[in-house]
Amino acid sequence: MAEHKIRVTVNGTAHEAEVESRLLLVHLIRDVLRFTGTHIGCDTTHCGACTVLLDGEPIKSCTVLAVQADGRQLMTVEGLEKDGQLHPIQEGFWEKHGLQCGYCTPGMMMTAYALLQQNGNPSEDEIRQAISGNLCRCTGYMNIVKSIRYAAEKLP
């Protein structure tokens, strides 16, 4: 089966890889490029633990092929912190106890990041709708909503 030579930019840095057609984007990110902050939780496009930004849009990377990302921009949780400064979303999750086991957290934060790019002042209901593709089993979502509100208020 065909191998494809692909080039993807992850958090601003270009990476090249030889991949099989069927390689899932999440496996490229985790197993090949070793950005292990992106997790896998369900395999059936339900949980959102694998959420990354593809050309700025949050998507479930278990349901995209690595070759489909060829030539595109990816952003993972590892790209949130800039110059040793936590992103306000990261601060919010820490301040407001928006995580417990931390497994869904990277995906949840990436969805939140994209939401705040679109809507700088989301209501509680808008936040709940926006994160409804990301499952959390620990927090009951209350503090996640607060964390995202914290970031919204902090962001310029």
């Binding site: 057609s21 069927r22 496009t45 349901t63 092929l65 070759v67």
Partner: peptide
């Protein structure tokens, strides 16, 4: 292969098979 949000889960579950995927993306 368009958005792939139905097709890829089907292939991953091995409930569907395809020798060739033509991505119109």
């Amino acid at each position: 292969l368009s958005g792939g949000q139905s097709l890829l889960p089907l292939l991953k579950l091995r409930l569907g098979y395809a020798d060739h995927l033509v991505d119109i993306g």
